[in-house]
Design a protein around this nucleic acid. Structure first.
Length: 526
DNA sequence: AAAAAAG
């Protein structure tokens, strides 16, 4: 008992917080006895009806810190049609769905009507639930406003308002929507406000919409046990180089790797990398915001349940999603904004476990790496030599490095306008090693049957895939135009929706300012 | 150089 920093406070149990018996029994059934710091700090105040400003990372038990007191307070009274009693705003659909799951789990002894209003699914069922009278309304801002404009929703009966992940809402340009929504709700309400960081815009928002809030800040305590080993991994800059680097990395980590999220910067890369990994027999799923909503949910569920070992994702998965026990995070791309790096690697090393993160870096990434290292205040160690030792491919043109004798294309200017055709470069890549996405899907079952034992066998199979692929080329090109299917990971929406108002950063604050999450201070010792 | 959220 030397460096043990445990204090008497931590002996606190849920029973000490003032929660109702119904809620307590559900918490006990879920296997919890001791509240996390944010729960211990926020729940008593929330139960007294006070406004709460919670500053906490995800993975700190933040969701239960508002769900549990809300359930207790909801035991008195009942909802009227189209007039929800409580409203929880979430930045993404997945987060909203996750909060709903928490209400179901901890509200199992209650008879509450819960309505989830998110985009990507039909209005009908949501309308019915509103009509029936919702005790708990969980929503993303767009769909909520949509319902309101259609006259299906009155917000003047809301007693408790929760704004979750406020800093992320800011990043996503939701703040004007949030302000609009706040103004629709009577000021007699109780407001519970959560944010991982407190940039100036968020502080302004709290000053405007919170009344004498109790401030609960827990980043330090909650992340004290966090331990993430971070490494940079050099790679050539071509897609096939990076994919190969990633595969080698994954194989090398195999023994320690329980499951991993692989982050890409772009949706199209998520889709392409996902198919490539499937082709190489990795047990992968994909997640990005333009996928069909059912596919999104399905992928996430499968990954959570351990049916998928790898999840290739855009930054939709970088924050907030509760995916316990991720052993590894791979950054297939260096994130352009340093804050995103912090959120991505924060998907591992949660709840006191150790985690590993690898960031694949190419020569053109150095300035982003510099920015990340500046933000986290540490140099990140190179996994296997830095970029000066990378096999040169920068000066080379697009000819595939291993595709022996692949003839150079005559007209290689890429004239294919984004959507219809794949780029010529991809066809080259396909010939050497990669495969057109459609063909990958087609042949996936064939590949899956074979046992994957050794590299030699892989090589052999790769050969057969390659030839199979050329045969299939004609038909897969024809398939290019086909309507998207369920489970299709290709981006499906056009990004030509009117751009929403974006909050501009104008005060010169970089990154987290003074509010750098504590877990960033615990980095791999170099 | 991106992603996310309304249809």
């Amino acid at each position: 008992m030397s460096s043990d920093t445990t204090t008497a406070q931590e002996a606190l149990t849920f029973a000490d917080l003032g929660l109702s018996p119904k809620v307590l029994s559900a918490v006990t059934d879920a296997g919890y006895t001791e509240p996390t710091p944010i729960q211990a700090g926020a729940i008593p105040h929330a139960l007294l009806g006070k406004d709460v400003l919670g500053i906490a990372q995800t993975g700190t038990g933040k969701t239960a810190s508002f769900v549990l007191p809300m359930l207790t307070r909801l035991e008195k009274g009942r909802a009227r049609a189209r007039m929800p009693r409580t409203l929880i705003l979430e930045p993404t659909r997945e987060l909203a769905a996750q909060v709903e799951e928490n209400f179901v789990k901890y509200g199992k002894n209650h008879k509450l009507n819960i309505a989830l209003l998110i985009g990507g699914v039909s209005f009908d069922e949501q309308d019915k639930k509103l009509e029936r009278g919702a005790d708990v309304l969980i929503a993303t801002p767009g769909r909520l406003l949509d319902h309101r404009e259609r006259g299906k929703l009155l917000l003047n009966g809301v007693e408790i308002l929760v704004i979750d992940e406020a800093d992320r809402m800011l990043d996503m340009g939701f703040i004007p929507d949030i302000e609009r929504i706040c103004e629709m709700i009577p000021f007699t309400r109780q407001t519970l406000f959560f944010s991982a960081t407190m940039p100036p815009e968020i502080t302004k928002l709290t000053e405007k919409f919170l009344h004498a809030p109790v401030r609960v800040e827990v980043s330090k305590a909650a992340s004290a046990a966090t331990n993430i080993t971070q490494r940079l991994v050099k790679s050539g800059s071509k897609p096939w180089d990076k994919r190969e680097t990633l595969r080698n990395l994954i194989r090398a980590e195999d023994a320690e790797l329980k499951n991993a999220i692989i982050f890409c910067n772009r949706k199209i890369e998520v889709s392409e990398l996902f198919r490539s990994l499937l082709k190489y027999d990795f047990d992968a799923g994909a997640l990005h915001g333009d996928m069909d909503q059912r596919a999104r949910m399905q992928m996430l569920a499968n990954f959570r349940d351990g049916k998928l070992r790898y999840l290739v994702a855009s930054d939709v998965a970088a924050r907030g999603l509760d995916i316990p026990d991720v052993s590894h995070v791979f950054n297939y791309d260096v994130p352009i904004h340093a804050e995103d790096y912090v959120h991505r690697i924060g998907r591992t090393g949660r709840a006191g476990r150790s985690g590993k993160s690898f960031t694949i870096a190419t020569k053109s990434d150095t300035k982003y790496i510099d920015a990340i290292e500046r933000l986290i205040g540490t140099k990140i160690e190179w996994h296997d030599g830095d970029l000066s030792t990378v096999v040169a491919s920068e000066g080379e043109d697009e000819a595939p490095r291993r595709g022996k004798g692949a003839p150079r294309r005559a007209g290689r200017k890429d004239d294919s306008k984004d959507r219809g055709e794949r780029k010529p470069r991809d066809r080259h890549a396909k010939r050497s090693e990669e495969v057109a996405p459609e063909a990958v899907r087609d042949e996936q079952p064939v590949v899956a049957e074979a046992a994957v034992a050794d590299i030699g066998e892989r090589r052999a199979r790769k050969e057969s895939i390659r030839s199979e692929n050329t045969e299939r080329k004609v038909s897969s090109d024809r398939n290019e135009q086909r309507a998207p299917e369920r489970g299709d990971t290709r981006p499906q929406r056009d990004n030509n929706r009117p751009a929403r108002h974006r909050q501009e950063d104008n005060d010169g604050t970089v990154g987290f300012g003074d509010d750098m999450p504590a877990f960033m201070r615990i980095v791999a010792k170099v």
